[in-house]
């Protein structure tokens, strides 16, 4: 049976995400893989995995849109592209059709995007040229603490006495972490402090509106960061079902509805 599929490929610097929608806009396939050094190979693998999940083949693709850092590497699927800011906005508006502030914490950068109720962007900010507040920061610190990234979420949850880090520089933070270890502080307390630091860095980037949506790989793997953010801003934070896929879903929506659809 032939189906009509619409594909979004989000080629992030750290992870590649693919979302496949059917003609009714339902998510029927998706995949996430480490981008690695050969973006085209990763994109192909991700695409095939998503199509397999959808029970379809490449011949069923009606249209595809690429986004993200490596969007030029998927020429074998599509030459159409949109920025990751536009796709994230589109994806989040799909799940939360209201005025929102999107906080995306990715492997290499952070974004804050503000949308009005019809989904139009009123502003956006990307982080500056440093790792502060990104997944790269957590990765670096996990290395220092000799723990895996996957362990961080549960560890932070166990913290009883959070250690606050004072600096926004990754190198200075590493020194602070080492000093905490030397002083016999518990790793769980340090990890929670790292999460706190990530959230602070992001909240410094821009003001936020009432309804806040969080997305991105760091959010997907560390739901505790979402809880902490909610506590810090004094209201619950919204999260789409697959927060790491929001950009890919947005790209697929562009494919489905065409460029000019608002």
């Amino acid at each position: 049976m032939s189906t009509q599929l619409f594909v979004g490929l989000d080629m992030g610097a750290s992870r590649t995400k693919v979302a496949v929608l059917d003609g009714a806009g339902r998510l029927v396939g998706h995949a996430v893989k480490k981008s690695g050094i050969d973006f085209s190979v990763t994109a192909a693998a991700c695409l095939d995995a998503s199509l397999e999940m959808a029970g379809a083949s490449r011949a069923d693709i009606v249209r595809a849109v690429a986004t993200g850092y490596g969007r030029a590497n998927v020429a074998f699927v599509t030459s159409e592209s949109k920025t990751e800011i536009g796709c994230l906005a589109k994806g989040c508006h799909h799940y939360f059709p209201e005025a929102i502030t999107i906080i995306d914490i990715g492997g290499q950068d952070n974004k804050i995007i503000k949308l009005d109720a019809p989904g139009r962007r009123s502003s956006f900010k990307m982080n500056r040229k440093c790792a502060a507040g990104t997944g790269a920061f957590l990765e670096e610190m996990a290395g220092r603490l000799d723990i895996s990234l996957e362990e961080m979420n549960d560890m932070a949850r166990q913290s009883t006495e959070m250690i606050k880090l004072g600096s926004y520089c990754t190198v200075f933070s590493a020194t602070e972490v080492l000093e905490s270890i030397r002083n016999g502080k518990k790793v769980a307390d340090i990890v929670k402090g790292l999460f706190y630091s990530v959230i602070k860095r992001v909240l410094e980037m821009d003001s936020i509106t009432d309804r806040v949506v969080m997305t991105g790989g760091v959010v997907a793997h560390n739901p505790y960061i979402v809880e902490m953010t909610g506590e810090m801003i004094g209201r619950p934070v919204l999260v789409p079902e697959l927060p790491q896929l929001a950009g890919a879903v947005g790209a697929a929506l562009y494919a489905l509805y065409g460029k000019d659809e608002g």
Partner: peptide
């Protein structure tokens, strides 16, 4: 890369608006 993404996203925003 950051300049390009920022500029493209900004122009997208202006055109969509």
């Amino acid at each position: 890369e950051q300049t390009r993404t920022n500029v493209e996203a900004f122009i997208e925003q202006l055109e969509e608006g």
